[in-house]
Write a protein that binds this DNA or RNA. Structure first.
Lengths: 212, 212, 212, 212
DNA sequence: AATGAATGAGGATTCATTCAT
DNA sequence: AATGAATGAATCCTCATTCAT
């Protein structure tokens, strides 16, 4: 491959990156409809027609944003479990929550866009929304697994329940954080969240115990 | 005076209503940007130019939607306290949560729009967003008051904390509900929320106790 | 006539005045097209529909503005001749020019609108334009008369010529004044104009003399 | 490569031209506000959205019209001085005036638009107006230079004065011409203008002489 | 691998005007 | 003598997308 060839090739990937980055930022600020191709073009420094060379259409661009952001999210979360090995369940959970909070702040654009999409209810569903909900499901599933190993006394239904509550709480705290822009102690609230999860887990154990 | 004649003139308020209703529905489905005046015109049965007789511009229209929806929300919530008199704190809370859950489902359009707006981060903030955040604050304040009378042992800070967590949980569960469209037992989860709040309150009391 | 009746009647005329004043100002600032009924409504403090009670349509409103403004202009000019009696021709002319300059500044809105209309070339001529051109013609005719009595040696053609040049110069100086907003000594230039007219008159006399 | 194919792509500049030409004509007939994008689109044969590819907005379009027209005007005027070499001052001036008159008639659209803009007084000044006034200033400056070499006895102030009067007269005669559409001998009046300038110059010399 | 130019559809908003009261 | 409400047509401009190069 010639020097020029490699260059050109590299540019291809790099330009794709620039477009994705711009699109993620903008979509995280203004939602799907608010993300105009013209704005992405401006922010990425590439002409609008170049965006269409890399992505079929706006729908595909934003789907790619979700996919790519979710991959990053997973990377950010994967390290957690390894990092958290060899401690008491409660300690592990606390560490997990702390790192989750950080991952959320790192992926704030992604989450904002995803939640905006989640809240939409249009007849013609967007690919990006579908993908975000799948990503959400995947996260939910993983969280259930984690809880299963963390709270061996809990049954599958209990763990699912706990995971749902955890995600709800995380989403809700994120929204509170966005509502009061820096007026809230996001990380602190996540510590409380960890405590609440442990309490809820015990509650579930206790209530489930007799039935088992 | 002909029937049609009387219509023509007196309908100022009624047409305003129609426009607001259409706008609320649409905005609750598609967000601020997705709410085109043409769509509102179509759904309300009035020409676009008539919308501009009643509202200065799109911003004012959606601000009015938020204001009006919040007034309805408050109406729906006001009955609660009266209804809940003369029971144990836990019972009162459970009743409150159940009715809150119902109020949320009744105001789903409002909440969806409001949360979408909350998640936006555009330089030129929308009036509707500002109003929703104010409404949110007002609700938060009222919730703190309720908690103060419900958990007399808790201090102001604790109540504020509890209120924040409650709102976060409610928002989070609403999102989970929207994500899994009917795949979730929304009301059931709110029962769990009541229990969690009581548990958290006890936890706060316990941890705060020694300091007092 | 009842008190209320008189009041109402007076209001009628007064409101008409307000509308005309607002329209004259706005049209003098923004031209015919730039004068929207909504703006006139706002500036006059009366609803748009009231404007249509007093004037058939926009065309009639602006025609009325021209008519009314020209009447004022004539009033402002009429005094001049009287005032200027019993002096040498040159002195009379100088006085005339000075007062004309003042009249122009007093009717600046009128002149600006009129000249903008004069410069338009649209297929569907505006009534206001026609009226302004008539007013212009009338002024031209009067100026010729004045010159006939001021320069008895000049023939009709010469006076017409002189009047045309005078008007051109006045218009041109007005434009120069508008172009350099207060950066020009409008009144001073009119003194020069008077001198130029006298010079031109002598020139015409001299060149016409032999032929007569 | 098909004929149509080549057209499609290479026509950037040509289409820009068509748009500018259409805009100049229309704006010269109806002024800034009267120049609707739809009209320009129709007259240029290009869709409205294409106009926005070539020009940021209406303001930029009309600014470009002024810029471009002024460039043409300068071209038309540049030849004059060369052409007029080697004659008496009076002859040079007469030739200059005659050619100026022709240039004015050639740039009538430009002048009409420019003068209409000059007469406007809106809070949000149009770019086109600013540019026209700059062009006017530039012309004024050049005229002063010409007069300095033509009337060496006159001082700077006198030349400036003379240039101001000349421009005023030219503008005024143009307006008279527009007012009486072909009812006036425009070129003939410019001969008179030349004579008047010479007379005024002599007058200035004479009055300035004693002071020197 | 990219892009300048173009374009139809639709965006929000303002327009002059009407009409029932 | 006036006006609140309404409205169809037009306003400027942005949209996502295409296509020839």
């Amino acid at each position: 491959m010639s020097e020029a060839g490699r260059r050109r090739h590299k540019d291809g990937a790099e330009n794709r990156r620039r477009i994705l980055d711009a699109a993620r930022q903008i979509a995280g600020e203004r939602g799907y409809e608010g993300t105009s191709i013209a704005l992405v073009s401006e922010r990425s420094g590439l002409p609008a027609s170049s965006i269409y060379w890399h992505f079929k259409d706006k729908d595909a661009l934003l789907a790619a944003v979700i996919e790519e952001s979710f991959a990053r999210w997973l990377e950010g979360m994967e390290g957690e479990l390894t990092l958290a090995g060899g401690q008491s369940g409660q300690e592990v959970l606390a560490a997990l929550m702390r790192r989750t909070a950080k991952a959320i702040l790192d992926s704030a654009d992604f989450l904002r866009l995803g939640l905006m999409l989640t809240l939409e209810r249009r007849p013609d569903e967007r690919t990006a929304r579908t993908l975000f909900l799948q990503a959400r499901d995947e996260t939910h599933r993983r969280m259930i697994e984690t809880y299963r190993s963390l709270f061996p006394e809990l049954d599958a239904e209990g763990c699912r329940h706990l995971a749902t509550l955890t995600m709800a709480m995380a989403d809700g705290l994120f929204i509170a954080y966005e509502a009061s822009r820096d007026g809230i102690d996001f990380l602190g609230h996540f510590d409380a969240l960890a405590a609440a999860v442990v309490a809820a887990a015990r509650h579930l154990e206790a209530s489930a115990g007799p039935h088992a």
